[in-house]
Simulated scan of single mutants.
Amino acid sequence: MAITAINAGVTGLNAAERALGNSANAVANLNTQGFQPAQAVFQENTPAGSGVTLSLRGQQLSQADAPSATNLATETTNSLVYKAQFDLSAKVVQAADQNLGTLIDIKA
């Protein structure tokens, strides 16, 4: 059970890291004409509780003379959410690691 929790936490860490990178890319291209930021979509793995995956909905370039479609307020909010998700996933891994250590100590 602790191994499953560690795996779920690690997939959460990876998904949050990729989403944060996507948000950073959108902010970096704020002034790029025609830039369309990708949208991060989180999905629960099957079976339920075994982790999460992230897919990025494609970037479609609009006309070169159109302004960037990046919304700075949205990306700032997303960055804060992804950071919180990363921190919480790290706490899941830490708690599962401590529980696993306790189980090993009890067995020994």
Score class of each variant (00 low, 15 high):
F35A: 08
T102A: 13
K91C: 06
A38Y: 00
Q94M: 11
S50G: 01
L72D: 05
V27E: 06
T74G: 04
V27Q: 07
K91L: 14
N29R: 09
A108E: 15
S89M: 03
K91N: 11
V27D: 06
R18T: 09
G21H: 07
V81D: 07
T76F: 15
T11I: 05
A84D: 13
T11E: 06
Q60V: 15
A66D: 12
V81G: 01
T4G: 12
L103F: 06
A69D: 04
P67Q: 07
T74A: 11
A66H: 09
A26M: 04
V81C: 03
P37D: 08
L13W: 06
T77C: 02
Q60Y: 09
N45I: 08
Q85I: 00
I6K: 03
T53D: 15
E75T: 07
A19P: 00
A16L: 11
T46L: 13
L103N: 08
A28D: 07
A2E: 15
M1E: 13
T74C: 02
Q94W: 03
A40W: 04
E44R: 09
A90P: 01
A2M: 14
S79G: 10
F86E: 00
Y82N: 03
A84V: 05
E75M: 09
N71Q: 13
S62P: 00
A96N: 05
